[in-house]
Amino acid sequence: MTEQEQQTEELRCIGCGSIIQTEDPNGLGYTPKSALEKGKETGELYCQRCFRLRHYNEIAPVSLTDDDFLRLLNQIRDANALIVYVVDVFDFNGSLIPGLHRFVGDNPVLLVGNKEDLLPRSLRRPKLTDWIRQQANIAGLRPIDTVLVSAKKNHQIDHLLDVIEKYRHNRDVYVVGVTNVGKSTLINQIIKQRTGVKELITTSRFPGTTLDKIEIPLDDGHVLVDTPGIIHQEQMAHVLSPKDLKIVAPQKEIKPKTYQLNDGQTLFLGGVARFDYLHGERAGMVAYFDNNLPIHRTKLNNADNFYAKHLGDLLTPPTSDEKNEFPPLERYEFHITEKSDIVFEGLGWITVPAKTTVAAWVPKGVGALVRRAMI
């Protein structure tokens, strides 16, 4: 072991949890030697990636593999802990961890719906809580309780801490979730509540901010563990540039838009997705997307030509200089028998009535699905 390795062996970035190293600028945990010495003096030791993310909003690629993330989560199976499972209520289906039961073992799961501030205030929160619980049951989960919060707005964090204490029973707490659900923002709020320290953990809208588990001491000698976000490959965040992601990822309460459609009409959701009304009576379709996402209506029989002609200018994002790199759209057809949501994972959804046939187009690799209507 080199002298440098000995010096940095136990040092970890307080932003993402990576082991600090000063030799490989492209590796995880890299920080210049000068920054290492300064960080040791101040007690605020960040890797270069987290430093740039915090101060310049510069996004660096994640070099951990899916297997690395899953291997870390496997440790939960052998733990005796309360599992706090964080989902994004705006992108519920895209924030589900497939086969979570394999990782939690016999440990109880507390389901936390984050970003509730993005949904219309007219949606009653008890109804939303019940909807989330039912959707979790469909996915095979049986949470002991469900809590709605907004980590960004610091809403209901005190209540969440009380619920955690109620079910913890002098055990560790593991916080799990896929990337982009606001998990690190939630952890930051918990730390702030408990210690007064602001923004200890690096937060970002982009996948893969937390690169190793981070342990936060609790009063009784146990710890609250922030685990790395599981990368959900079907998220829209993986096909959009950081600039475009800011346009389609809601940052404030969404305002639903109703479109009276005849069959044979198409809605383009910017240039990133498409909705076709194939068969049914004239009906109102309610769109739930970021308020800044431009939506264009056209005739179905002209939709292909319209997309080819206007992608990158009228239909943005992507922008004109990014459209050649954007994945082609793939089509999914749905026959609707009851009021349902057509979900464009990571983007939003359109609520459609019963007795209709519709199609959803999403970038190759991104998921589209039908679910029972949330609203």
Rank of each mutant, 00 (worst) to 15 (best):
M1I: 05
E3K: 13
Q7S: 13
T8G: 04
E10R: 13
G15I: 04
I20Q: 00
I20R: 00
I20S: 01
Q21S: 06
T22H: 01
E23N: 13
K33S: 11
A35R: 12
L36P: 00
K40G: 03
E41I: 10
G43R: 10
E44T: 14
F51E: 09
L53W: 02
N57G: 10
A60C: 14
V62T: 09
T65N: 09
D66P: 10
D66T: 15
D67I: 14
Q75G: 12
I76G: 00
G94W: 03
G94A: 08
S95P: 04
L96Y: 03
L100A: 02
H101F: 11
R102H: 14
R102Q: 12
N107K: 11
V109M: 07
L110E: 04
L110H: 01
P120I: 07
R124T: 09
D130Q: 14
W131T: 02
I132N: 02
I132L: 15
A139D: 03
I144E: 12
T146L: 06
H155G: 07
H155I: 06
H159P: 07
K166Y: 12
D172R: 02
V178C: 05
N180D: 11
G182Y: 03
S184H: 05
Q193K: 15
R194I: 06
T195I: 06
K198W: 10
S204G: 14
L211M: 04
D212T: 08
K213E: 11
I216F: 13
H222K: 15
V223F: 14
V225Q: 05
P228N: 02
P228K: 00
E234G: 12
H238D: 02
P242S: 08
K243A: 15
K246M: 11
V248A: 01
A249V: 13
Q251N: 13
I254D: 07
I254Q: 07
F268A: 01
R274H: 07
F275L: 07
F275I: 09
R282S: 11
Y288P: 00
F289R: 01
N292E: 15
K299I: 10
K299S: 13
K299P: 03
L300T: 09
N302L: 15
A303Y: 08
D304G: 05
N305G: 14
A308F: 09
H310T: 07
H310C: 10
S320Q: 14
E325T: 14
P327L: 08
P328D: 11
E333L: 10
F334S: 00
E338P: 05
K339V: 09
S340A: 13
I342D: 02
E345R: 11
G346E: 06
L347Y: 05
G348P: 04
W349M: 05
P353Y: 06
A354K: 13
V362W: 02
G367D: 15
L369V: 12
V370D: 04
R372L: 09
I375P: 06
